[in-house]
């Protein structure tokens, strides 16, 4: 691979990209239906929620944190929005999106304050929030779905909307969800790469002491990361509700694993400071295409989880082994070359 492409992709991203291509090739060999426009679009539509959430998780992982409350936050927005849609036949999608983002912003803020201001370990703070939210939601919904019949008809139509769709061809056109995902990814990319805010988060993740020394407020940056993630979840929740045209309070149980998995597969390090939007997109695609490939190869959904879990374990292990190796080979003493003495 030429240096230019390598630079463009970054080392980590390049290897994820190669693996992604390999996965797609293998999937195509097993079932040629894989590499068709409609299948790819369906996979992307189905994983847009994962993709949008992974943008939020990326920010949190960049700060060295983790978010175990993805499920609670997503479900909260789905249920509140779903109830509003069902009870008032409310279908103003813009308002619904704003509402979802506002709720997510609030729950994210709670996480951020617990982590940044109270110094709670991120895993505990977010597990705690998840427990409170899910406890309440289970009580409130009693596990009951809000189904398509109860929702305003426009919601389902929005979920089915495709751009450039040819009514004569089934599955043609670009799904709305894909476009939304691309927009969110671009926005996150812009923030992380073009805005001082994003660069500050990257800097802080790499060296917290250094960031504070050049006058950045680490507490506020951390809080912002959790808030941004919450807003992403809110956005994803509305998108998901439209796409599914229903609300299932149990839909997101264990979903945080997928989200963290996509970010980690994309090359982000749990210690913070390392990770990119491009990598996370590739990680999500890898995740989605492996699952879809397995489905098309008629491997059961249960096996898919096992394989994906194993892949994530191996990916992080590989990173650790590499890191330990580098550490071991690090130069600690500047040994004088023998010639220098002879001279």
């Amino acid at each position: 691979m030429s240096d230019k492409i390598k630079r463009a992709l970054g080392n980590k991203e390049a290897s994820v990209f190669i693996i992604l291509i390999a996965v797609m090739l293998i999937a195509t060999i097993f079932n040629p239906a894989f590499l068709t426009f409609s299948n790819i679009m369906d996979v992307l539509k189905g994983n847009a929620t994962l993709g949008i959430c992974s943008m939020g998780m990326l920010l949190i992982i960049l700060t060295g944190g983790i978010d175990a409350s993805v499920c609670g936050q997503l479900t909260l927005v789905c249920v509140i929005a779903g109830k509003i849609m069902a009870n008032f036949q409310f279908d103003n999608i813009i308002v619904l999106y704003l509402l979802g983002i506002a709720i997510g912003c609030f729950t994210g803020l709670l996480n951020g304050l617990m982590v940044a201001r109270l110094d709670l370990p991120p895993i505990i703070a977010t597990l705690g929030l998840d427990s409170v939210l899910m406890g309440y939601l289970k009580y409130y919904t009693n596990g009951n779905w809000i189904n398509a019949k109860e929702l305003p008809p426009r919601i389902g139509q929005i979920g089915l909307f495709r751009f450039f769709s040819n009514p004569e061809v089934n599955g043609s056109g670009v799904p709305l969800q894909l476009l939304l995902y691309v927009l969110v990814a671009l926005l996150t990319w812009f923030m992380l790469n073009r805005m001082l805010l994003g660069r500050s988060i990257m800097a802080m993740g790499g060296s917290r002491v250094g960031a504070e020394r050049i006058g950045l407020n680490a507490k506020n940056l951390t809080t912002f990361a959790y808030m941004y993630a919450g807003m992403m979840y809110g956005f994803a929740a509305i998108t998901y509700t439209c796409a599914m045209n229903s609300v299932d309070p149990n839909a997101f149980l264990g979903f945080e694993m997928n989200v963290i998995g996509a970010v980690v597969l994309g090359g982000a390090l749990m210690t913070g400071g390392q990770g990119s939007v491009l990598g996370t997109v590739l990680g999500m695609l890898l995740f989605a295409f492996i699952k879809n490939g397995l489905t098309l190869a008629h491997i059961s959904a249960y096996w898919q989880n096992i394989i994906v879990g194993a892949i994530i374990l191996l990916a992080v292990s590989f990173d650790m082994i590499k890191l330990h190796r580098e550490e071991r080979l690090q130069t600690k003493v500047d040994i004088e070359p023998k010639e220098a003495i002879a001279r």
Binding site: I123, G254, M257, N305, I306, G309, L313, M320
Partner: peptide, 23 residues
Amino acid sequence: YIGVLPILVTLGTQTVFDGIALN
């Protein structure tokens, strides 16, 4: 032995064990 963070390991094995049980 590999030195992976416990939270990542057990999140991964959670999926794997659960997957096998469901399977």
